[in-house]
């Protein structure tokens, strides 16, 4: 199991699972840290605080929060599924039964 802390700086990963507790969970989700989204670690401080990029936002979080974000490497199918590396296409969501 790999957490945001174990990420290599600059590489892009996928948020697999969030083990976050409230209220941090809600706040990070509102900022776009949802399961399946792309995430990239930019910097790590000595105390374990981390700066990362998610959905175009640069966020700084403390160590304990970073430990609760489980990520995984991008696979071939992820890359195929995501145009330009970011964002995926899902059509026909207007009206019920679209999914």
């Amino acid at each position: 199991m790999m957490t945001l802390k174990d990420c290599r700086r600059g590489n892009v990963y996928i948020v697999e699972k969030s083990m976050l507790k409230q209220p941090g969970k809600r706040r990070l989700e509102s900022l776009g840290l949802t399961e399946g989204t792309l995430i990239s670690k930019l910097n790590e401080a000595i105390d374990g605080s981390i700066i990362f990029l998610v959905r175009g936002s640069r966020l700084a979080i403390g160590k304990d929060l970073a430990d609760d974000i489980i990520v995984r490497d991008m696979t071939e199918s992820d890359i195929r599924g995501k145009k330009n590396g970011w964002g995926k296409r899902r059509r026909n969501r207007h009206g019920k039964g679209g999914i």
Partner: peptide, 18 residues
């Protein structure tokens, strides 16, 4: 259903962005 609702809003945003 908070987590699901947040995620599905972002799914829709991805569509818009696309």
């Amino acid at each position: 259903y908070e987590t699901e609702i947040i995620k599905q809003k972002y799914d829709f945003i991805e569509e818009v962005i696309e």
